[in-house]
């Protein structure tokens, strides 16, 4: 542009610096977007893919969170769905049994207030919010026992709210699933 030639050298330097700072800020935005995508894909954070709702007052009357439908279910393709609820002051089922090295869908919700859902020794750590269904795709590497404390203060009996997760061998789980449609390890 014709007018540019009339400017002092100081203005050219200012423009160059301006351009570099602009480039740097765009790169920072790009890195942040990329980081969010990366940790999402690699499940360092587990943003939920969809929002599903369920009435906390009537969970026991109908739908997938009725007492007899809770526990682990094995689908025809070998994947497993676990359904559980949190309530003041226990998880039902109190002991969740899952196979190792298998894609698992954890579905849970709360029947009253906000509860925490944390499985020790894994990166599973989320909240059970009344009215909403928590849905997590997870995979346990090896057989073993984990404790599952409620990690969100849910009332005066909160510290007594603990569940258990028992990860068993794949074939052992398959045998159990053949005998029963919904599995738990409550004794």
């Amino acid at each position: 542009m014709a007018t540019e030639t009339d400017h002092s050298p100081g203005e050219a330097v200012a423009a160059r610096i301006e351009r570099r700072w602009a480039t740097l800020s765009i790169v920072i935005v790009g890195v942040l977007v990329g980081m969010a995508a990366f940790i999402g894909i690699h499940q360092a954070t587990m943003p939920q893919g969809r929002v599903e709702i369920a009435d906390p007052k009537t969970l026991h009357l109908s739908g997938e969170f009725t007492e007899s439908n809770l526990g682990s279910e094995m689908a025809a393709d070998g994947s497993v769905t676990v359904r559980a609820i949190g309530q003041q002051y226990s998880f039902t089922p109190q002991c969740i049994v899952v196979p190792a090295d298998t894609p698992i869908n954890l579905r849970a919700t709360s029947a009253d207030v906000v509860h925490g859902f944390l499985i020790e020794g894994t990166n599973i750590n989320t909240m059970l919010v009344p009215g909403y269904i928590t849905d997590l795709p997870v995979r346990f590497k090896a057989p073993g026992d984990h404790v599952m404390p409620c990690q969100e203060f849910c009332g005066i009996g909160h510290q007594g709210m603990w569940g258990k997760v028992k990860v068993v061998d794949k074939t052992a789980f398959r045998d159990m699933a053949a005998a029963k449609r919904r599995l738990t390890c409550v004794d």
Binding site: G49, R50, E52, H60, N69
Partner: peptide, 25 residues
């Protein structure tokens, strides 16, 4: 889904109880 439009859970065939459960809300 990603924008968080809520939807009712997909109704699959749930296992029915073989005993009476409380129906009080």
């Amino acid at each position: 889904s990603a924008a968080g439009v809520p939807r009712a859970a997909v109704q699959e065939t749930a296992v029915k109880p073989d005993f009476k459960t409380s129906n009080v809300v």
